[in-house]
Design a protein around this nucleic acid. Structure first.
Lengths: 228, 228
DNA sequence: CGTCCGCTTGACGGAGGTCAATTTGGGTGG
DNA sequence: CCACCCAAATTGACCTCCGTCAAGCGGACG
């Protein structure tokens, strides 16, 4: 019995569509770990020796400017992969938002496995393509959307991602702080807060207990997210 | 004799590190085309039946909001690959900036070839990873940099990309319009123009004939690009 | 030589940033 | 169980960077 057999996100990630034999080989090189909230998994510039897969919780990845300005380039949910690097060091920092469970894959051994199982390689490529498409959406958001459109897009994104993981789309769980949301959307915490208030006042959303946001009118939100 | 033997950007793209046999097979499915400046290669939402490789000229890819706001997510230079899609339609529009030569690969046949030659698959994955890292840099730029930092970063990017293609890094050729630069950096043409003037006045750059920008002090520019 | 388009420059305004003061709420110890 | 504490969130007042609108300017091309 290896841990993968109980893995609830296997279908979402690189492990999907592996044969029993392939899965066994993957499980051989894999380690599982847990971290508390607020733990730095690796820092920008650290030697990139490990690949990670989120199995529970939320991770944020971000880049910094010398003066401390921060851009969060993604929130990683169960099933998401991270730790790929172009040269031999990570190009960003990865930090847990909530308590998190991770699978660790030593990079070298993972690369060997990818060469051996083209199906896995292909799956990873497909995941990278998806990420690329998401990155392009995010560029449109950062470069051209207003604060209100950004917040609405963000809520929709969380809702859609929850849906893909088989959770209910509404209300949507928002585990990250206002500061994290701000750094993801290219805003300040104050603007994020004001915009939430504004959306609440105009009855598009309401804020529930436990960091949950109830979407009152999904169609309104979809229009608001694109400025229509 | 197939066209690849004369290709000057082969080492930069997916065709690099292919065996003669693999290259021959790739050449079999490949078509070359030329377009004038300002030609739409494909539009967002079009069925994604072809992959492209730039062999000369510059291509821009962009996404639009319903009201016409535009975000250019990348400028593609010789050796760059584009046309990958997640589902079966393109997620962005591709349009030529200058006269352009392209290699066209029918998607289905390309996928078959990728399955047959894992080395190519791997190379493509590596290129996608690079693009992903570039996308993350661009998110940092769009979300957190000032207009001046954006322009300086942009000039440095062009200079570095020229360098990787074996061209001289300075002066740097800027083939795209102010409007395109603006839509790439999340600014307006007016701000782009003003910022160029400002950099010119403070003797960081000077504008030369033929859309060339002379970088007067590379270290200054590097610092300005990161707000240091 | 006139027209057009892209670029530049100027004047002005507003979306969102900055700084600061409260308020809220989750965690902790008495 | 409650009082306290502190970080996070909210709200307000003010300001700035960049967008908007508008007017030149100059090179390309018919």
């Amino acid at each position: 019995m290896h841990p993968c057999s109980a893995c609830t996100v296997r279908t979402l990630t690189v492990c999907a569509a592996l044969e029993a034999e392939e899965l066994r080989r993957l499980a051989e090189i894999l380690q599982t770990t847990r971290f508390d909230a607020g733990h730095t998994v690796f820092g920008e510039g650290d030697p990139a020796e490990t690949l990670y897969n989120v199995t529970s919780g939320t991770v944020k990845v971000y880049k910094l400017l010398p003066d401390g300005r921060r851009q969060i380039t993604g929130f990683l949910l169960p099933g998401d992969f991270f730790g790929l690097s172009v040269n031999d060091s990570y190009a960003y920092t990865a930090e847990t938002v909530t308590p998190v469970s991770l699978c660790r894959f030593p990079r070298r051994r993972m690369e060997a496995l990818l060469d051996e199982f083209p199906k896995m390689q292909r799956r990873l490529f497909s995941m990278a393509s998806n990420e690329l498409a998401a990155a392009q959406d995010q560029m449109l958001l950062l470069g051209r959307k207003t604060a209100k459109e950004k917040i609405c897009s963000f809520l929709l994104l969380l809702s859609q991602r929850a849906s893909r993981r088989g959770h209910k789309t509404n209300p949507v769980h928002v585990p990250m702080s206002r500061a994290d949301i701000a750094d993801y959307l290219g805003l300040t915490t104050e603007t994020v807060s004001r915009t939430f208030t504004q959306l609440k006042t105009s009855r598009v959303i309401s804020l529930l207990e436990g960091n949950k946001v109830q979407i009152q009118d999904m169609d309104d939100l979809l229009d608001l997210a694109e400025g229509a």
